[in-house]
Design a binder for these strands. Structure first.
Length: 436
RNA sequence: GGCGCCUUCGUCUAGCGGCCUAGGACACUGGGUUUUCAUCCCAGGAAUCGCGGGUUCGAUUCCCGCAGGCGUCACCA
């Protein structure tokens, strides 16, 4: 059986894009599933558009997602170099070949390939037979007047030389394919197999745009999406697990991958489901691991072992790691209350009896706190929910918090009593107007 | 405009001629558990399968038109 080799060929013209990751995922999975090799090649022949540092960022983002490559600009390989700007000599040599065969000619400083005489047809791996009339494949530039090859020319030469067996790319390349096939034919080279997966769409159903859509992989990291979750989500766009599973690892994706389960229609990149998936992954992550990755989303000097104590309290409350800060900051920062937040007219009573109950707790643990507070609630006939809301407000200054008794255990008796006292004095001062 | 690709609940999708009075997931709504929020557990609404013709005993599934959407028409990739 022929050797399977796939590739992703990003241009270092900016940040790492979800579309790049999406395509990388399919190529990676197809290669791995079929015992093949996955290659990354940099297409940097447009000198003006190259951006400093983009190469590094793209590679870093892909490996953050857990995608690995067998050959590439950083790791090297038998077909080195993997950067088109370093392969200029190769292209020059190949142009000569076409010039000699009289299949290409010079025109205004550039070199053009003569268009196709025949209709161009190929059997697309994902879409079936696709035909373009010969009239659509006119003469086109293969070497620019600055001496650099155009995209079409460099792609074909590199894919051939790097023995790429399956060219799997986005559907926006469908109309490029006839020209590239014409090039293969001009050289007399064997055609690779082509497969065109759908492009990701924005809410407007147009292809993802830098302006309107969240497409920078770095942003996802900053927002606190786990790479495993993002990958999982991406896998679900245009592809579905044969058993209908929604949550699975990249390894499982590879095991189950096949091109015939790839849909043709372009999916809308709607991150609502990503949030759910991310939550699922957060809940599956161990506390220790979660602490490590949450740390970079916490501002302030919060020790790791402290985070380890509170992380279980918010684990099932977070969809994104970036929410940790808001959920936890009351632990290391006394809330700035205003009287308005204590809406319950019984707030003061709640606080007074909580104060008494908690002052009397000898051994400060959850069991004793529960017991002390429970007795007070019964005795004073408080409504449990209301009572705890007042307490929650006193501790955290907000209505949405981790479980409050557990939180108080961690906060410590002194701090808890201190906050109750402060909250009380705010209420007292409010309820004692000047008339007094 | 030419050429090409695509078209199932709001979104992601299953479906490859009868099992579909179209299944699942997210989101949404209602309920239960619960000290808030979540988690978890039930229940529910939600697609006349873009439209019109065929083929067939029978079409979401096959064929042909049309419409709409998207892509592409660079010395960008």
């Amino acid at each position: 059986m022929e050797k399977i080799r796939t590739r992703t060929a990003p241009s270092p013209t900016g940040f790492a894009h979800v579309g790049t990751a999406y395509g990388a995922l399919f190529n990676y999975a197809f290669a791995k599933k079929n015992n093949g090799k996955y290659i990354i090649r940099l297409e940097d022949t447009d000198v003006k558009r190259n951006v400093e540092g983009a190469e590094k960022e793209i590679l870093a983002s892909l490996s953050w997602l857990g995608i690995t490559w067998d050959e590439g600009p950083d790791s090297g390989g038998p077909h080195f170099p993997y950067k088109q700007s370093q392969r200029l000599e190769i292209y020059k040599e190949k142009v000569k070949e076409l010039l000699n065969k009289k299949l290409a000619y010079e025109d205004d400083g550039a070199i053009k390939l003569k268009g196709s005489q025949d209709d161009i047809v190929w059997e697309d791996l994902i879409r079936g037979s696709i035909t373009f009339p010969a009239s659509e494949v006119n003469d086109f530039v293969i070497v620019k007047s600055d001496g650099y090859p155009t995209y079409h020319f460099a792609v074909v030469i590199d894919d051939h030389l790097m023995e790429i067996s399956h060219v799997i790319r986005g559907e926006e390349h469908i109309s490029n394919t006839p020209r590239q096939i014409a090039l293969y034919k001009a050289f007399g080279w064997e055609l690779p197999k082509f497969g065109h997966f759908p492009t990701l769409r924005g809410a407007d159903r147009k292809k993802l745009s830098k302006r309107r859509d969240p497409v920078n992989l770095k942003i996802f990291r900053q927002e606190g999406y786990l790479p495993e979750a993002l990958v999982n989500f991406l896998c679900l766009l245009g592809w579905s697990h044969p058993e209908g599973k929604e949550i699975f690892t990249i390894a499982e994706f590879v095991d189950n991958f096949s091109l015939d389960r790839v849909r043709k229609a372009g999916p809308v990149f709607d991150t609502q489901k990503l949030d759910w998936i991310n939550g699922e992954y957060i809940r599956k992550t161990s506390d220790e691991e979660l602490v490590k990755i949450t740390l970079e989303h916490i501002t302030g000097d919060v020790p790791e072992d402290f985070l380890l104590k509170v992380i279980p309290l918010i684990k099932e409350r977070m969809a994104k790691l970036s929410e940790a800060q808001g959920l936890l900051e009351f632990f290391w920062q006394q809330p700035a209350w205003t009287k308005e937040i204590f809406e319950d007219p019984k707030s003061l009573e709640h606080l007074a009896s909580a104060n008494i109950a908690l002052s009397g707790v000898k051994v400060w643990d959850l069991e004793n706190i529960n017991k002390a507070l429970g007795e007070k609630i019964v005795k004073n006939e408080f409504k449990t929910g209301n009572f705890y809301m007042t307490l929650r407000l006193a501790m955290a200054g907000k209505r949405i918090t981790p479980p409050i008794n557990e939180s108080m255990v961690i906060l410590g008796q002194d701090q808890v009593l201190h906050r109750i006292h402060d909250a009380e004095s705010i209420l007292v001062s409010v309820e004692s107007p000047e008339i007094q």
